[in-house]
Write a protein that binds this DNA or RNA. Sequence first.
DNA 1: GATGTTTTCTAATCATTGTTAGATTCTAAC
DNA 2: GTTAGAATCTAACAATGATTAGAAAACATC
Lengths: 203, 203
Amino acid sequence: MNPKVTRIKPVLKKDKTREVLLDKAAQMFSRQGYQSTSLKEIAAAANMKAGSLYYHFASKEALMAEVLDRSIQFISDTVAEEIEKLNENYTFEDGLKAFINGHLTAILKHPDYTTTTIRNNGQIPKAVQLSAHTKREHYEQQWRRLMAQGREEDFIRPDLDEQLFRLMVLGSLNWSSVWYKPSGESIDSLVKHFTQVFLNGCR
Amino acid sequence: MNPKVTRIKPVLKKDKTREVLLDKAAQMFSRQGYQSTSLKEIAAAANMKAGSLYYHFASKEALMAEVLDRSIQFISDTVAEEIEKLNENYTFEDGLKAFINGHLTAILKHPDYTTTTIRNNGQIPKAVQLSAHTKREHYEQQWRRLMAQGREEDFIRPDLDEQLFRLMVLGSLNWSSVWYKPSGESIDSLVKHFTQVFLNGCR
DNA sequence: GATGTTTTCTAATCATTGTTAGATTCTAAC
DNA sequence: GTTAGAATCTAACAATGATTAGAAAACATC
């Protein structure tokens, strides 16, 4: 009834707690898994009651979907950053270094989000998977392109299927989220060892 | 009242359905995870009702514990078999080949049991983990010894931490349970590629 | 301070789950 | 065929889960 033009839009408190909820959810999903984490727990971690979550998210699945989405986005972004540091015509060797660096850094520096993607493989409703599926495909596609380049440059030994090699590298990297302890070796050092092993391994 | 000596003990039907239950449970645990699998589902897969499970197992946790136990046992046994094929003083190179062969074969040929161990990392009650913990430790110890041998033989490049290398290999192998499709490359072929990459990778 | 909006809580619903005790059926030996 | 034991089912229990509608509180604007 009152079409006054009061459009100042504070909209700040809301987004903030939304962010907190996502962070807490990511934390618990990554540690306990999707099914083992109750909305009550997530809400409690944000000093709220379970019912209040529904003001911010439509359902538990929607919440998980957004966590997964951010998870992949973050890994993808971190890798993209590393690639941008290279000059335009980077070699496969430099490319692989950058990919490993980005992927591993993302996983180990922000395990809350990223481990959610890795640990909950196949254990969440398919409708939820679907959301992040596109981004995941896109990210994998970048790895595939890198491997194709390795093939063209003849860096990868001819009798080694480059896509199988890709799966070996990714498996190795992803698994680090299982054993990594921040108290141990530095991430930079880990990156160096991973790249050395796999650069030697493929030729 | 009648202490007659009738001790024929048939005891056969029982163990059989127990076996079926374990198989079905392993199948569902490995695919959907521990929390997402209900006793009702497992029972249904064995043409039974949920309550009947308690004649065979004390609890859901006890059932999972036994699946986990068999899972690790099976991997460990398969590797041991491969090692026994070698002559007593096998080299690190042959040893690594045998380990990779055994581990990968176990995982990919009997994914129901083995994937349960891999997928449910951290998502099951600690009391359950405890049971299989000893066997898991023992198996890891064998890998550690192999790596120590690689170090002694100077097969592993000096600046590469051999335990980190172990984690790379195991991560790579375990992750195969995520992407492997029986329709693709043969397990033997996969074994060859894995060993080549990692033998080249560590020196 | 009154008012409208935003955010959170309360309390209840409905479905599901692991678990148990007792009744029931099945099986095999006599 | 009777009987004892083995194996399964039935029906309930208590706990917990996600979800929802409406009340209450917090907040900002006038």
